[in-house]
Amino acid sequence: MNILWDFDGTIIDSYPVFTRIFRETIGQEHSDEEILSHLKISFTHAREYYQLTDVQMKEIFDKEGNMHPTDTQPFADVEDVLRHANINVIMTHNKRDVVETCLKYYGLNKYIKEIVSRDDGYPKKPDPSSYQYLHDKYQIDLAIGDRDIDILPAKALGIRTCLFQNNTSGADYYISKYRDFFTIDDFQK
C-alpha cells in the first residue's frame, strides 16, 4: 500500500504546542479548546478568525521555527503503519527542514520516500496539485490526514481517504488511534 500522509496532527501530535503558541500570541483569554477548534479547520482559517496582524504572524512563525522535536511527539503506533506501507510520502504546509528534523529525531525518516512541503511552491491544500504530483509518481492508494483539507485533494483524484481523530463526513475510513488501522479489512493485505 502506498500512503500519502499529512504531517502535523497526523504523524506528529503538534497541535498542543501550536495551540500554546497561538494563545501566547493572541492572548490568554482564549481557551485551548477554542483555538484548537479553529486550527483544526486550517491555519489560514485561524489566522482570519483571530484577525492576526503581520507582526503576530511573524511571532508565531518565529516561535514555531524555534521548536525542538521534543516539543511534539509521534502518535502512538504510527510507526507500525509507516513500517507496514510499501511507500510513504508526506504533503505538508510545514517547512521541509522542520519536518525532516522531526522525522530524523524520532527515527521515522527511514520510512518516508518523499516530502512535498510549502517550500516546493504548490498551492495550499485543498488544491490537488501536490497530491496529483505524488499520485503520478507513486500511485497513491490512501491519503491519511486529520482535517478535511487533507482528504479533499485525494477525493478529487479518486484516492481513498482516511481521517485520523476526526469524524467529519466524507472520508472512506476513520480511525482514532493507529492500532485501529490494522482492523480495517482493506488494510490487512
Score class of each variant (00 low, 15 high):
Ala154Asn: 01
Asp127Trp: 07
Ser31Met: 04
Gly65Ser: 08
His38Pro: 00
Lys125Ile: 03
Phe164Ile: 03
Arg83Glu: 12
Thr70Ser: 11
Met1Leu: 09
Pro16His: 11
Glu48Ile: 01
Tyr50Trp: 01
Lys40Leu: 15
Phe187Asp: 06
Tyr106Val: 06
Asp120Tyr: 08
Glu34Tyr: 06
Glu48Cys: 00
Ser14Pro: 15
Ile3Trp: 03
Asp150Tyr: 02
Gly170Arg: 07
Ser31Trp: 05
His135Tyr: 10
Ser176Arg: 09
Gln139Cys: 09
Asp77Leu: 10
His68Arg: 08
Ser14Ile: 12
Tyr131Pro: 00
Phe182Glu: 10
Ile3Lys: 01
Lys63Gln: 15
Phe182Tyr: 11
Asp172Glu: 10
His30Phe: 11
Asn166Glu: 13
Val78Thr: 09
Thr72Gln: 12
Gln139Trp: 09
Lys104Leu: 11
Asn166Val: 12
Tyr173Ile: 03
Arg179Val: 12
Asp13Met: 04
Lys40Pro: 01
Asp185Ala: 14
Asp136His: 09
Thr53Tyr: 08
Phe187Tyr: 10
Phe182Gln: 10
Ser31Gln: 06
Ala154Pro: 03
Phe18Gln: 14
Gln73Ala: 13
Asp54Pro: 02
His93Gly: 15
Pro69Tyr: 02
Met1Ser: 08
Asp150Leu: 01
Asn109Val: 08
Ser117Ile: 14
His45Asp: 00
Ile26Lys: 02
Lys124Gln: 14
Ile159Pro: 02
Ile41Ala: 01
Asp172Tyr: 09
Asp32Glu: 15
Ile115Phe: 12
Gly9Thr: 05
Met91Ala: 11
Phe18Glu: 14
Leu163Asp: 07
Ser169Gly: 11
Leu36Met: 11
Tyr49Arg: 01
Thr161Asn: 08
Val78Arg: 07
Met67Trp: 11
Asp32Tyr: 15
Lys110Phe: 12
Ala46Leu: 00
Tyr111Ala: 12
Ile35Asn: 02
Asp172Thr: 13
Arg83Ala: 11
Thr101Phe: 05
Gln51Asp: 04
Met67Pro: 03
Thr161Pro: 08
Gly170Asn: 09
His30Met: 02
Arg23Asn: 10
Glu33Gln: 15
Lys125Met: 08
Asp13Leu: 03
Tyr49His: 09
